[in-house]
Lab assay of single mutants.
Amino acid sequence: MATGGRRGAAAAPLLVAVAALLLGAAGHLYPGEVCPGMDIRNNLTRLHELENCSVIEGHLQILLMFKTRPEDFRDLSFPKLIMITDYLLLFRVYGLESLKDLFPNLTVIRGSRLFFNYALVIFEMVHLKELGLYNLMNITRGSVRIEKNNELCYLATIDWSRILDSVEDNYIVLNKDDNEECGDICPGTAKGKTNCPATVINGQFVERCWTHSHCQKVCPTICKSHGCTAEGLCCHSECLGNCSQPDDPTKCVACRNFYLDGRCVETCPPPYYHFQDWRCVNFSFCQDLHHKCKNSRRQGCHQYVIHNNKCIPECPSGYTMNSSNLLCTPCLGPCPKVCHLLEGEKTIDSVTSAQELRGCTVINGSLIINIRGGNNLAAELEANLGLIEEISGYLKIRRSYALVSLSFFRKLRLIRGETLEIGNYSFYALDNQNLRQLWDWSKHNLTITQGKLFFHYNPKLCLSEIHKMEEVSGTKGRQERNDIALKTNGDQASCENELLKFSYIRTSFDKI
């Protein structure tokens, strides 16, 4: 039985969820670079991206490699990797027998973001014989899940209580170790020597080791999670996991709180800001991140802002960003909400898709409305799209047979046209069989910064309504002859009103 693990408890099935942008060198404390989270699957090609990484700022997932063999891993080693800020997950990587050479110096898994409450997941690794993470000293947050690894031993010899604050939620089941077939031998045991430290858990006094050649490092209890030197002297209180010299914040392997210019500090002093819960960055760093993602459509890219001495992905609820200094300031009234469309555009074809934009005031991208039916549609669209004030790209209304009016965009005031449909149009209306009105132009103002209007096959939309939009939106004169079809717009509506004058002759039985 794995020490510190839980057996036999019912657990939810383990679901495996399925960018080499360097964020800056980590400095003297770390020998390499800070790398983003990685999802490495199918083959070993991307694994080489770990070569210079000291910190993975995010998670590391290595999974679904069915053609790899043990010899493929023999020359692979990433000794610079010290810390993973989120979680480490391995799933069905064939041929991998140990992690001792792959990650010989991995010391800390912070667990800032977890995989279903777990910071370390080893699942269905069919050839893994031992973990071998002999320098792993601290899992700051989260638990361990090690399950269905039929060859995995050296679990009962690990004292997880020396690595985690609590072992109650560890789930370590259905491994070879369960069948008591392992016969784990710690260093020196074969020669009758006791080389590794022994600890007591559940009444068992057991030597602690990761492999037959690597003991588990056990520091004096007084050192807590700070770690200790090879001689057993406690590291500085700002260290986490390990250090090369005692009581020196510049000799830590990793930091308990924050890293700044080669030393570990309790908090980031001005003019620095907390970033990702582990390091200090200056304003320029946060500003660069903001600008890199301002026009990016890459998933996970955030326009970072500053709030409460932190550089964070977005302002919290009730705050909006001051564009001059990136500071989050309290909103006066309802907060603006910028919604970034991942692929640059979004099609609204149902109430469900409209709900995804609920509360958005600025759309960074283009909207395509293609709704053919739905219950209580006008009210639903207004509830979900009615706060949109600005669209950076274009607005396209296409084959939306259920629409009679666009009044559900009740606050839309600006279409920038930074991206144009077919390279020309910022407003595009095609084949809307029941569209009769755009907006009530006596109450609604709309500016279209650039781009043209396109109207074709809107049989109940009168040309007068379209011409009014040209005047109000500032697009009059931009359109070419064929942009607004004269014969297919309003051709099934009563669009022309003329005053009919009647004269009559009164007659009676005795007068003409």
Rank of each mutant, 00 (worst) to 15 (best):
V281D: 01
N117I: 09
S324I: 01
P270K: 05
M65W: 02
L76F: 10
K251C: 07
N308T: 05
P104E: 01
M137Y: 12
P270E: 08
L88E: 00
V121T: 07
T229Q: 07
K310F: 04
Q303K: 04
C301F: 08
T229I: 10
N325V: 06
L90H: 00
C243S: 00
Q61L: 08
G300L: 08
K224G: 11
F116H: 02
V200T: 10
K292P: 05
E151I: 02
H48G: 01
E33D: 15
N308R: 11
E231F: 15
L102S: 01
I40P: 00
G333D: 12
Y87I: 00
N135P: 03
N175K: 14
N242E: 11
P187S: 07
N42S: 10
N175D: 14
L152P: 00
E207S: 06
F103M: 04
P70D: 14
S284T: 08
R141A: 02
L152R: 01
E57G: 03
E151M: 09
N150C: 04
P79Q: 09
G132F: 01
D261I: 04
H290F: 14
A198I: 12
L50Q: 01
P313S: 09
H48W: 06
S237Y: 11
A119D: 00
K80Q: 06
G192W: 14
S296M: 10
F73R: 05
C331E: 02
H28N: 11
Q245N: 12
C35M: 00
L88C: 01
I109S: 00
E314I: 03
Y154L: 05
E97W: 09
D277Y: 12
T329N: 09
S244H: 10
L327S: 04
L99R: 00
T221P: 03
T267L: 03
L106S: 00
R145N: 11
Q287W: 15
N149R: 01
S296K: 07
C243W: 00
I139P: 01
S54N: 13
P36K: 09
V305H: 04
S317I: 09
H226M: 09
S225K: 06
N135V: 01
C315Y: 02
G300V: 10
W160K: 02
C228V: 08
L106W: 01
H226P: 04
P334M: 15
Y171V: 13
L99C: 04
V34L: 06
N309D: 07
N195F: 10
N42E: 14
N105I: 02
E57C: 03
V144H: 01
C182Y: 03
V126L: 15
C280V: 00
D86R: 02
S54D: 02
Y171H: 10
C315H: 02
A156G: 11
H302L: 04
H307S: 08
T211S: 09
T250K: 03
I84S: 00
I172H: 03
K310P: 02
S323K: 05
T250R: 03
P330N: 09
V281I: 10
P271N: 04
T199N: 11
G183T: 07
K310M: 05
R113F: 06
K129C: 08
F285T: 08
T329S: 10
P220D: 14
G262D: 01
P104N: 00
I185C: 06
C335R: 04
S77G: 08
L289F: 08
L136V: 07
Q303R: 12
D177Q: 03
P31M: 15
G203R: 09
C196W: 01
I306C: 03
V121L: 03
C235K: 00
D169V: 10
K224R: 05
E180W: 05
T107F: 05
Q287K: 07
H28I: 06
R141P: 01
G188F: 08
D288Q: 15
F78W: 03
D72N: 15
L233E: 13
N195G: 08
E57F: 02
L76N: 01
T157F: 05
L164Y: 03
C228Q: 03
L233H: 11
G333E: 03
I56P: 00
P79R: 06
R141F: 09
S317A: 05
N308D: 07
T107E: 04
I146N: 01
P104K: 01
S77D: 03
G227A: 06
C264P: 01
N282Q: 10
V253P: 01
S166T: 15
F78I: 11
G95A: 08
E314T: 13
T140K: 14
C280F: 01
Y272P: 01
T157E: 14
R41I: 09
E314F: 01
P104C: 01
C215L: 07
H291T: 01
M321E: 01
G142I: 02
N42T: 12
I146W: 00
E130S: 08
Q245T: 05
E180G: 06
L50H: 02
G241H: 04
S161D: 04
C228M: 02
V218W: 08
K129S: 09
L90W: 03
G111H: 01
P334H: 10
G111F: 00
F258P: 00
D159C: 05
S296G: 11
D248L: 04
F91C: 01
S161V: 09
D169F: 09
D177C: 10
